[in-house]
Design a protein around this nucleic acid. Sequence first.
DNA 1: GTGCATTGACACCTGATACGTTACAGGGTA
DNA 2: TACCCTGTAACGTATCAGGTGTCAATGCAC
Lengths: 95, 95
Amino acid sequence: MLMHNPPHPGEVIRELCLDPLGLSVTAAAEALGVSRKTLSAVLNGKAGISPEMAIRLSIAFDTSAESWLNQQSQFELWHAEQHRNELKVKKLVAA
Amino acid sequence: MLMHNPPHPGEVIRELCLDPLGLSVTAAAEALGVSRKTLSAVLNGKAGISPEMAIRLSIAFDTSAESWLNQQSQFELWHAEQHRNELKVKKLVAA
DNA sequence: GTGCATTGACACCTGATACGTTACAGGGTA
DNA sequence: TACCCTGTAACGTATCAGGTGTCAATGCAC
């Protein structure tokens, strides 16, 4: 279990994909085939990386869709872990 | 890219968690702290495994939340891949 | 300096989904 | 018959991805 609040995957997209190529949000959104707002929301952590978005990223930037989706999963899991103690779950198998 | 239609993670839950312990859907749902309907939907592929559900499974069955979430991600990704050609995406980096 | 296009973030609407409760139909078993 | 388990439906809740529309700030041409 990670200790620090991980950055949302949108930041990683900006740093690894947009910045190196000097791409604007508008240009990247157009290339990805989504609206500026949609990409903007992802970049600013207002939305997560959907499977469809992961594939778009993999095509445009020749990367792995799995890696983007795993980053998103880990991010969501970390947030869910913060409320682990609120879940009333009975252990059915000894730890 | 996988060739075969992968089973939804719900089937895996039933085979790996419920069946070995002889648990009914009702009993398992109660232990997990969710409604019978919610678990039924997951088991029958009507709903996916949410991060919260992954944590519930990890507590109850002493398993890895990441593994359940990754299975779900791979499942969703496979379905999204089936519509890859419908996405109008421009390659920004040579393959 | 002034006008105009571009950029990027915001507010609102739509559709999908996870979860809850309640209720019903069918199958198995005592 | 009576009972439990299961799947499913309808309805309300909250969250969220995606779209269109709008707006402040920036930059360029004049």
